[in-house]
Lab assay of single mutants.
Amino acid sequence: ATVHVKGVTYHFDNPEQAEKFAKRMAKELNGEVHVDGNTWHVD
């Protein structure tokens, strides 16, 4: 799974980790999470 945060890409072997990371980053950055298959975007 892949997480894109403000133009930076993070790779996770575990999709659950990717989801938790994306949601945590969105919270910290006051952003929104969008999911597209195995790819998470934090804007």
Rank of each mutant, 00 (worst) to 15 (best):
A1H: 13
A1E: 04
A1V: 11
A1N: 07
A1M: 07
A1L: 06
A1Q: 08
T2R: 11
T2F: 14
T2D: 06
V3Q: 00
V3H: 00
V3T: 02
V3R: 00
V3M: 01
H4Y: 14
H4T: 14
V5R: 02
K6A: 13
K6F: 15
K6V: 06
K6Q: 13
K6T: 06
K6S: 13
G7T: 04
G7L: 04
G7A: 04
G7C: 08
G7Q: 05
G7I: 02
V8F: 11
V8M: 12
V8R: 13
V8L: 11
V8C: 14
T9K: 09
T9I: 15
T9Y: 10
T9S: 09
T9R: 08
Y10H: 05
Y10S: 02
Y10V: 04
H11F: 14
H11D: 05
H11A: 07
H11G: 04
F12T: 00
F12D: 00
F12C: 05
F12V: 01
F12P: 00
D13H: 08
D13C: 10
D13G: 07
N14I: 07
N14M: 07
N14S: 14
N14W: 07
N14D: 14
N14T: 14
P15I: 12
P15W: 11
P15E: 08
P15D: 09
E16V: 11
E16T: 10
E16N: 08
E16K: 10
E16C: 11
E16Y: 10
E16A: 12
Q17V: 09
Q17M: 12
Q17K: 10
Q17S: 12
Q17R: 07
A18W: 01
A18V: 00
A18N: 00
E19A: 09
E19R: 07
E19I: 05
E19L: 06
K20C: 08
K20G: 07
K20Q: 13
K20P: 03
K20M: 13
K20I: 13
F21Q: 01
A22C: 03
A22F: 02
A22K: 01
A22R: 02
A22I: 02
K23P: 00
R24K: 13
R24H: 12
R24L: 13
R24T: 09
R24M: 14
R24F: 13
R24W: 13
M25V: 09
M25H: 03
M25Y: 04
M25N: 03
M25E: 03
A26I: 03
A26N: 02
A26P: 00
K27S: 10
K27Q: 12
K27C: 09
E28W: 10
E28K: 12
E28H: 08
E28A: 11
E28I: 12
E28L: 12
E28T: 07
E28D: 07
L29W: 05
L29E: 03
L29G: 04
L29N: 04
N30D: 08
N30K: 10
N30Y: 06
N30G: 14
N30I: 04
G31S: 08
G31K: 05
G31W: 09
G31P: 01
G31I: 05
G31V: 11
E32A: 12
E32T: 15
E32L: 13
E32Y: 14
E32I: 15
E32S: 15
V33N: 02
V33Q: 03
V33T: 06
H34S: 10
H34I: 09
H34F: 12
H34A: 06
H34N: 06
H34C: 11
H34K: 10
H34R: 15
V35L: 11
V35C: 08
D36W: 12
D36N: 12
D36H: 14
D36F: 13
D36P: 01
G37I: 03
G37T: 03
G37Q: 05
G37S: 04
G37V: 03
G37M: 04
N38Q: 07
N38E: 05
N38Y: 09
N38I: 06
N38W: 09
T39S: 14
T39H: 15
T39A: 14
T39Q: 14
W40F: 13
W40E: 01
W40D: 01
W40Y: 13
W40C: 04
H41G: 03
H41T: 14
H41D: 04
H41C: 12
H41R: 13
H41S: 08
H41W: 15
H41I: 15
H41L: 11
V42I: 09
V42F: 03
V42W: 02
D43L: 15
D43T: 15
D43Q: 14
D43M: 15
D43H: 15
D43V: 15
D43S: 15
D43R: 14
